[in-house]
Simulated assay, not measured.
Amino acid sequence: MENTRVHTSSVSLISDLKEITKVRLAVSVVFSSVAGYFLGAESIDLLTVIMLAIGGYCLVGASNAYNQIIEKDLDLLMDRTRNRPVPSGRMSVNTAFFIASFLTILGLVILYMINPRTAMFGAISIFIYVSVYTPLKTKTPLSVFVGAIPGAIPFMLGWVAATGNFGIEPGTLFMIQFFWQFPHFWALGWWLYDDYAKGGFFMLPTGKKDKGTAIQIVLYTVWTLLVSLIPVFGVTGKLFITPYSAVIVLALGLGMLYYAIKLYRDRDAKAAKKLMLASVSYITLLQIIYVLDKLIRTWI
């Protein structure tokens, strides 16, 4: 009986650690960083890739843990968040704060070991997310613009980790992920509008599920697509994609635009969910295409 309780407790602790660090979100962020590294590296150093993945996961996990501490009372009001470790009472605020602080220090140390600039951008990301974006979420829809900054850093962070420098190449990667976040998060905010409203979060640009929000979603989807195609024109330094890859990115972008226009036309939660899922597919496939394009050109 005692062994069963210990096993259950251990499983519960691991589950809570995964939830407080938002493991799926953290893994997707790490994926972006690693993709950026492959794009920037002249030769792949496996140790650096591992350090980037671990350091990146630590900082994202810490950001999410701090966020859940700050919003614990609001999380309790929403259906999708009330069972999180802190608001549900399974984990104390002190324990969550210790985890967040430990992950912050560990993540920054690991990224600093790669190079100081990588650690600097990592520190900027967690500071903006926790100290600026999180408090603004209940104050103004403009919080999404602020949150897009730390959200766009991971893709460029990988390039900085590979080169130690910041220039037009990581700047372009930053802009791609920056613009992408608006249709992604506004679609999510539309889909979960009622639940967000329970916690006092109004994530949509007009604060409502209306024509104005739908138009902005379409416009930012177009801008995301246009920025994604810039590297094909050879104006972004060492960051370049072939016309073949550009055609694939264009097709993916048009697919995402289709769902954005469908949301504008239907203006319902179902269309918003489809756009949100399409946006996730778009950014993931774009990063894979960018990396494969470089690898194929290198092999040929």
Rank of each mutant, 00 (worst) to 15 (best):
H7M: 11
S12A: 14
L17H: 06
L17E: 06
I20D: 05
T21H: 06
T21V: 12
K22S: 03
K22N: 02
R24V: 12
S28K: 05
V30A: 14
V30M: 13
F31Y: 14
Y37E: 03
F38M: 12
F38D: 07
D45Y: 05
D45L: 11
T48Q: 03
M51K: 15
I54D: 09
V60T: 14
S63K: 07
A65N: 01
I70K: 10
E71H: 01
E71A: 01
M78C: 00
M78R: 10
D79W: 03
P85K: 00
V93K: 05
V93E: 12
F97C: 10
L108F: 02
I110T: 13
Y112S: 14
M120W: 08
M120V: 10
A123G: 10
S125T: 14
I126R: 00
I126E: 08
I128T: 13
Y129H: 00
K137D: 02
K139C: 10
S143T: 09
P150Y: 05
G151D: 11
P154M: 01
F155M: 07
F155P: 14
L157C: 09
A161Q: 12
A161N: 14
G167P: 03
G167C: 09
I168C: 04
T172R: 03
T172M: 13
T172K: 03
I176E: 00
L188F: 03
L192D: 06
L192C: 09
K198H: 08
F202Y: 15
P205N: 03
T206R: 10
G212Q: 00
T213G: 04
A214Y: 06
L219H: 00
L225M: 15
L226G: 01
S228E: 10
G234H: 02
T236E: 07
G237P: 14
T242L: 02
P243R: 02
V247R: 06
V247K: 04
L250G: 08
A260N: 01
Y264V: 01
Y264M: 12
Y264F: 15
R267Q: 15
R267D: 06
D268Y: 01
K274R: 15
L277R: 04
A278I: 00
S279A: 15
V280F: 12
S281R: 03
R297T: 04
T298G: 11
